[in-house]
């Protein structure tokens, strides 16, 4: 069986919104500890991994299941969530459906057909990074939107003193500098000066659900995928994006 109750459907909507920009379908691996899923996007440029510990739920009861879901349908349903709605996710093993229930003054139940997906064997590789930057999520997100004015890729740079988001168009360019002591930076640990280029569309998709108050952990190295980590609604999200080589 699987049944989980979350306090805010609206908050969880942000998670589904973000994940569904990168993936078409997902296989949730459910067990008594919580829910996990990870997958690469179809082009293998990006990886999404999420972990929902049982503590993120008000009520949680589960044994082991793999629940394959079409994310477009899941997103559409979650878009119907209202601000006071509780979210109940429950597996109907007989009908082979995932019930998504919004509970408020009444109950609205959407039943999604399960997809026959097997859990991805793809896991976030255990890469050691020389540099770790913790930055306020909205500051990083805004810098990416600024960069998007002039280019379709962005250069992320880090040295001992600052983290830089740079974009270079044919004619125009953009630079956002976050000095170590600026209010946007929570911490800046740099062992190796780094400069790497990444696709902006992917990066902006990865931070889609971020709002003010959220903090993003950025792992950066030379010629390495960038790794982003943050939490939304108690859900731990990890993203990996392969670099662009000049």
């Amino acid at each position: 069986m699987f049944r989980g109750v979350m306090e805010s459907a609206k908050e969880f909507k942000k998670v589904v919104d973000t994940v569904s920009t990168l993936l078409d379908e997902i296989c949730f691996e459910v067990d008594e500890e919580g829910i996990k899923a990870s997958a690469m996007d179809p082009s293998h440029v990006a990886l999404v991994s999420l972990e929902i510990p049982r503590l993120a739920f008000e009520e949680y009861e589960a044994d082991s299941h793999e629940i394959g879901i079409d994310l477009e349908a899941f997103k559409k349903v979650m878009n119907r969530a209202k601000s006071k709605d509780k979210l109940i996710l429950e597996l109907d093993e007989e009908k082979n459906k995932l019930n998504i229930i919004f509970e408020n003054t009444g109950k609205r139940k959407f039943s999604l057909a399960l997809l026959d997906l097997s859990a991805s064997s793809v896991k976030v590789p255990d890469i050691e990074y020389p540099n770790v930057i913790m930055i306020k999520g909205d500051a990083f997100k805004e810098a990416l939107k600024d960069a998007d004015l002039f280019s379709d890729y962005v250069i992320l740079k880090a040295d001992e003193d600052k983290f830089v988001v740079h974009a270079k168009g044919d004619l125009n360019d953009f630079n956002a500098e976050f000095e170590k002591d600026s209010s946007a930076i929570i911490s800046l640990e740099v062992k190796e000066e780094t400069k790497s280029a990444f696709n902006l569309d992917y990066l902006m998709d990865m931070v889609k659900g971020v709002s003010s108050g959220d903090i993003i952990k950025i792992y950066l190295g030379n010629d390495m995928p960038v790794k982003l980590e943050y939490s939304l609604a108690g859900v731990n999200l990890t993203f990996l994006l392969a670099p662009r080589i000049e």
Binding site: H44, V45, L47, P125, L240, A242, P243, R244
Partner: peptide, 12 residues
């Protein structure tokens, strides 16, 4: 212009 790598290279 640059070349977009895939993650496959990093999963070996």
């Amino acid at each position: 212009k640059g070349k977009q790598l895939t993650l496959d290279a990093f999963f070996k």
